[in-house]
Design a protein around this nucleic acid. Structure first.
Lengths: 212, 212
DNA sequence: CATCCGATCTAGACAGTGACAAGATACCAG
DNA sequence: CTGGTATCTTGTCACTGTCTAGATCGGATG
């Protein structure tokens, strides 16, 4: 989470207006609500999310969120979209930096853990509007970055079906991340996520030449 | 779901009492509520679950569920426990019937799809009491059935770390099932779950002898 | 500078929810 | 028949999401 939060008591406001606890216009309420939602989800999951509590925490009235997101589902749709964009950026960076397929998988796992609030929403489509155009576009972009590297790998090994092999890799990374976050994993695995992910992911495509 | 449901208008009641729409004692309210919950979760996910609506659908007062489960979390704890027991039975059956490791994975995927309501609760520990003794026991039993077959496989191939290899298999099956249910998979994969799962799971341990 | 207009936020109200307390009913052991 | 306990009901409370109407601000237009 690299974004900075712009709260109500912003310095810009104080220069022109007398000190007020609650200026009428927040400045960047949309972002503040999203950040508050991420915090809340990190603490108690998306099911326990309360729009009114977000509003309280940010210092606006209970109906203010509705204007920016229309709906609770609207807010979660925005979060999911942002999550898919962030995921796509993460995967692209990993692929361009290492050119290594395994590292993309590890990056996927790391993203799932470090940005758990996003992922907790992204893969619960019943919570948001899964047909939203911006969301669909962001999701497809992220998906493409998962399959792209695989197509390249399939050129070297004709026995590899890029679709199913990619799906296997995606499933493996996704499942490992989910099992890790739900705490379902045995403690003998240790707490070094990076190493554990690498060890486990390596079981896929073992016979494939060094790059994998 | 092999259990039969005992609803309010049971024949036994009618013999001794005049025809009543709502006899005071339901007969098997606990099971009826669990079944209603499964239906509701199948339709709208566990987040949208409403105890009062369950009570209405079963034909009891809004506070009746509290007596059997104490709490909404209590009901979900019961569901998760039951889910883990069912999963354990499914995996055991698959392993004893086929002795094939891949088939256990396929059974896991099939369970995740066919009993989606259970799984939707089981892997969202923030929704229930994850420390509940009965639940912990059921979860460990299911987990053991995932690792057991792997230990046997590791005897043939010393290079196999049973823990991490088992985790890879579990992650792969779990991730595939989750991606399938969220509809995140490309349509080119077809709609034959059994075949798709087999194809994808087969990418793990390819070099391992035929039994895997 | 004055004015208007749209974007942003507030205030109030409503039905629905989970949880709690107190009471009613049914069943069962004695 | 009777007392006691498990089961269920009724009433209530604070809280939530959503809807309505209204207040306030900021910036563009004249």
């Amino acid at each position: 989470m690299t974004r900075s939060i712009c709260y109500a008591g912003d310095m810009r406001k104080r220069a022109t207006a007398p000190i007020r606890a609650h200026p009428y216009h927040h400045g960047n309420l949309r972002r503040a609500l999203l950040d508050a939602a991420l915090e809340s989800i990190a603490a108690a999951g998306p099911a326990a999310l309360s729009l009114r509590e977000l509003a309280r925490r940010v210092g606006v009235s209970h109906a203010a969120p509705a204007h920016h997101f229309g709906d609770k589902a609207g807010l979660l749709t925005a979060l999911a979209t942002e999550g898919y964009r962030l995921l796509a950026a993460t995967l692209r960076e990993a692929w361009e930096r290492t050119g290594n397929f395994l590292d993309v998988g590890v990056a996927y796992v790391r993203f799932s853990i470090e940005h758990r609030p996003y992922v907790a929403v992204m893969f619960r489509p019943e919570l948001y509007r899964a047909g939203d155009p911006a969301l669909v576009e962001a999701r497809q972009a992220a998906s493409e970055l998962l399959y792209g590297p695989l197509r390249q790998l399939a050129r070297d090994d004709p026995a590899l079906d890029p679709l199913r092999a990619g799906l296997a890799a995606w499933s493996l990374a996704h499942g490992f991340a989910e099992l890790w976050t739900t705490g379902a994993l045995p403690p003998e695995l240790g707490d070094d996520l990076e190493q554990a992910a690498r060890d486990v992911l390596a079981y896929l495509f073992r016979p494939v030449p060094p790059s994998g």
